[in-house]
């Protein structure tokens, strides 16, 4: 069952390459939250219940509802145009993300470690690099945040792989998740709209040498 969820997770990554609307991105991020909820539930059922509840709450409440809602709110409030505006054509994005997935797959195939749940590793790496790819290939800063959230989801999958033995790490990961995303989004909500004109919200590129 976990395998199916993780495969669906990977498909959602491919979809990120195809999608060109911010709304679809938000939907994907929210959807990934649901999948992670499922994965966490199946994988971590053995750890102590308090921890489990915390993790489940984080995935379902935070990743699936709060953050996507927040993102929507920011887009509305700052009147950000709804297109992702990639530097590269979307077609190339799909190709690159496919290559990323294949690459992570091949990489993990070279590891001979019986303890490793390979599929977690593949999915996590794919999410990680897809997130990075989205950050470098999209023009808007809100899409950078979304790329970061995808990376976070990848990290979550990775922490699942070690979660049974070291639940503390999963918790720290969650801490990171909440901390970083609340902070990133918080600046967006409160400050960017006040200080900058609408047009500037989309690109911050004045500081350079």
């Amino acid at each position: 069952m976990t395998n199916i969820l993780l495969i669906i997770f990977t498909i959602s990554l491919i979809y990120l390459g195809v999608a060109n609307r911010l709304k679809s991105y938000i939907a994907v991020i929210s959807f990934q939250g649901i999948i992670l909820f499922g994965v966490a539930f199946i994988e971590l059922i053995e750890i102590n219940w308090l921890n489990l509840v915390l993790i489940l709450l984080e995935t379902i409440v935070f990743k699936t509802i709060v953050i996507p809602y927040f993102l929507n709110y920011i887009i509305k409030k700052n009147k950000i145009t709804r297109e992702a505006e990639p530097f590269l054509p979307d077609f190339l994005s799909v190709v690159i993300i496919t290559v990323i997935i294949l690459g992570s797959f091949l990489l993990s195939n070279t590891i001979n470690d019986p303890k490793l749940k390979k599929i977690f590793f593949v999915v996590a790496l794919s999410a990680l690099f897809t997130g990075l790819y989205i950050i470098v290939s999209r023009r808007k800063i809100i899409t950078h945040v979304m790329g970061f959230l995808v990376i976070e989801n990848g990290v979550f999958v990775l922490s699942m792989a070690v979660g049974n033995e070291m639940p503390m790490l999963v918790n720290i990961g969650i801490l990171l998740d909440i901390f970083a995303s609340v902070f990133l989004l918080g600046i967006f909500v409160n400050k960017i709209g006040d200080v900058l004109k609408e047009g500037d919200v989309e690109h911050l590129s004045k500081l350079k040498d």
């Binding site: 800063i141 950078h144 970061f148 600046i187 400050k191 200080v195 500037d200 911050l204 500081l207």
Partner: peptide, 19 residues
């Protein structure tokens, strides 16, 4: 706006690096 840009970049890069 410039300090905002600096802050944004700092937080963003640091968040990624901390990840």
């Amino acid at each position: 706006s410039l300090s905002l840009e600096g802050t944004w970049k700092y937080i963003f890069v640091c968040s990624i690096s901390i990840t």
